[in-house]
Simulated scan of single mutants.
Amino acid sequence: MQASIRHDWTRQEVAEIYHLPLMELMYKASTIHREYQQTGEVQVCTLLSVKTGGCKEDCSYCSQSARYNTHVEPHKLMTTESVVNKAKQAKENGSTRFCMGAAWREARSNKDFERVLDMVGQINEMGLEVCATLGMLDEEQAEALKEAGLYAYNHNLDTSREYYEQVITTRTFDDRLETIKNVQKAKISVCSGGIIGLGETDEDRIGMLTTLACLPTHPESVPVNALVPVEGTPMEGNKMVSTWEMIRMIATARIIMPQAMVRLSAGRTEMSTEAQALCFMAGANSIFAGDQLLTTPNPEEDVDMIMFKTLGLSPRASFKEEAKTKLEKDAVIY
Score class of each variant (00 low, 15 high):
E129C: 06
C131G: 09
C131Q: 04
C131V: 01
C131W: 04
A132P: 11
A132V: 04
L134V: 04
L137A: 11
L137H: 05
E139K: 08
E140K: 14
A142D: 13
E143T: 02
E143V: 02
E143M: 00
E143K: 00
A144K: 08
A144C: 05
L145R: 07
K146L: 11
E147A: 09
E147S: 08
E147M: 11
A148M: 01
L150M: 11
Y151R: 13
Y151I: 03
Y153T: 02
Y153E: 05
N154E: 13
N154V: 07
H155Y: 03
H155V: 04
H155N: 12
L157H: 12
D158A: 06
T159A: 01
S160T: 13
R161T: 08
E162G: 11
Y163Q: 07
E165M: 13
E165A: 10
V167K: 10
V167P: 12
I168F: 11
T169A: 09
T169F: 08
T172Y: 12
T172V: 06
T172W: 06
F173V: 06
D174H: 15
D175K: 09
T179W: 13
T179K: 15
K181I: 04
V183A: 04
Q184F: 08
K185Y: 04
I188P: 00
S189Q: 14
S189W: 11
S189A: 11
S189I: 12
C191W: 01
S192A: 09
S192C: 08
I196N: 11
G197I: 14
L198M: 12
L198I: 10
G199I: 02
G199A: 03
G199Q: 00
E200S: 14
T201V: 01
E203G: 01
D204F: 01
R205W: 07
I206K: 13
G207N: 13
M208F: 08
M208L: 12
L209K: 14
T210K: 02
L212F: 11
A213Q: 11
C214N: 09
L215T: 14
L215V: 12
L215M: 09
L215F: 07
H218L: 09
H218R: 02
P219I: 08
S221P: 01
V222A: 13
P223D: 10
P223M: 12
N225C: 03
A226H: 03
L227H: 01
L227D: 01
L227W: 10
V228I: 10
V228T: 12
V228Q: 05
T233G: 15
P234S: 03
M235F: 12
M235T: 10
M235D: 15
M235W: 07
M235Q: 14
E236I: 00
N238G: 02
N238Y: 10
K239S: 15
M240N: 05
S242C: 01
M246N: 09
M249K: 08
M249F: 03
I250C: 06
I250K: 03
A251N: 00
A251F: 03
T252A: 14
I255A: 02
I255T: 05
V262M: 04
V262G: 02
R263T: 15
T269M: 07
E270Y: 11
M271W: 06
M271F: 01
T273L: 09
T273N: 10
T273E: 10
E274F: 07
A275H: 03
